[in-house]
Write a protein that binds this DNA or RNA. Structure first.
Lengths: 187, 187
DNA sequence: AAATCCATATACAGACCTGTATATATAAGA
DNA sequence: TCTTATATATACAGGTCTGTATATGGATTT
């Protein structure tokens, strides 16, 4: 991938998170990225296309990092669920954390026909499914139910942490997840 | 309050929830409300002012309804926390539910200097404080911590329920809240 | 050195949005 | 009937945004 294209992606990811997607114009993006609109529209067919690529890259980076961490650091598959929030906290509190795109995107694009809304919904569903499969491996009966609960907490904590760094939201989310997992294991 | 003003408020609340705040122009609002821009700008000094009034009305309606329900239906103050999510579910699943404004507003207006961001943050903080006071009355030690956990679940569930009616998010949020409250009571 | 590719600089069309100006209709009260 | 208050109809100024057109600069390859 071109260096300019990835620069634009990084800058857009940043600005979308800090200023909102709709409030960030392409002029601002190219100005911060140090390039011009002509170049942006060479790599992306439209602003919508840019948003979609930002979402896709963000989700892929997160998912592949998370899978890698779980696979290389946790031996027993049934222990992965317990460690999940440890790694999520590590990701969220890392200095290069730039928010979870799909959480904000679904709020800014509520129209169900919008491709952006559809992609972010799909990513949210995929993440829930990922948690559910870990829960199943851990021997939990209502895996989908627990996955929904954990994703609610996770998405809320990420949103809170991103809005106010060091809010402690992630710490309490981690505690809550432990309690909910323990409860689901003994039922 | 003038009939037209409250009509505009209701319509704006609806459109902001279903289409997003930034994506909803004042032309659309007055067209749906069956009036004109001149009238809207008679009652509201600007679109920002309209948004602020929509947020304030939504939050007041919810908080006063919730307090009323808790006060008139729960005798012992220490039982209020347990019943909290029952009433919230009732509110969220009622046919005239129009979303919790402050959840979406803080996502669409991330700039901390924006009055809209400030108001929605304040409302979120107030709601958390309300839960914390119920937790204290119920004899819970780390009331603020539990309040944060419950508000994370609550905001996530409202968001999910509003995005997809009948998603079951509220049902699992209720279960999670019971587990977390029980755990906090025995620690 | 000539040709080709890549990015820049700049300008602008067309759409949309907020907020206002002006003129008109309607209804109620004196 | 005359006046006053309230809502409508319509047009538009000024701004922002996306996306494109046109011309220029610089670097690499042949």
């Amino acid at each position: 991938m071109s260096s300019l294209k990835s620069k634009i992606l990084v800058v857009a990811t940043d600005l979308f998170q800090t200023r909102g997607i709709n409030s960030t114009g392409v002029d601002t993006i190219v100005a911060v990225a140090g390039t011009t609109k002509m170049t942006l529209y060479k790599y992306f067919t439209s602003k919508e296309n840019l948003i979609l690529e930002v979402l896709e890259k963000g989700h892929q980076d997160f998912q592949s990092w998370l899978s890698e961490q779980l696979n290389s650091n946790v031996k027993k598959p049934s222990d992965k669920l317990q460690k999940l929030f440890e790694f999520i906290e590590e990701w969220v509190t890392s200095p290069n954390f730039r928010g979870m795109g799909f959480i904000k995107a679904s709020a800014e694009f509520p129209n169900e026909e919008s491709p952006i809304h559809q992609l972010s919904s799909e990513q949210s569903r995929q993440f829930r499914q990922f948690i559910s499969s870990l829960a199943t491996e851990a021997g939990i009966h209502d895996a989908d139910g627990l996955a929904l609960q954990l994703s609610l907490i996770f998405e809320g904590a990420v949103q809170a942490e991103q809005m106010k760094r060091g809010s402690g939201a992630m710490k309490y989310a981690k505690k809550a997840s432990k309690i909910l997992i323990d409860s689901a294991l003994t039922n």
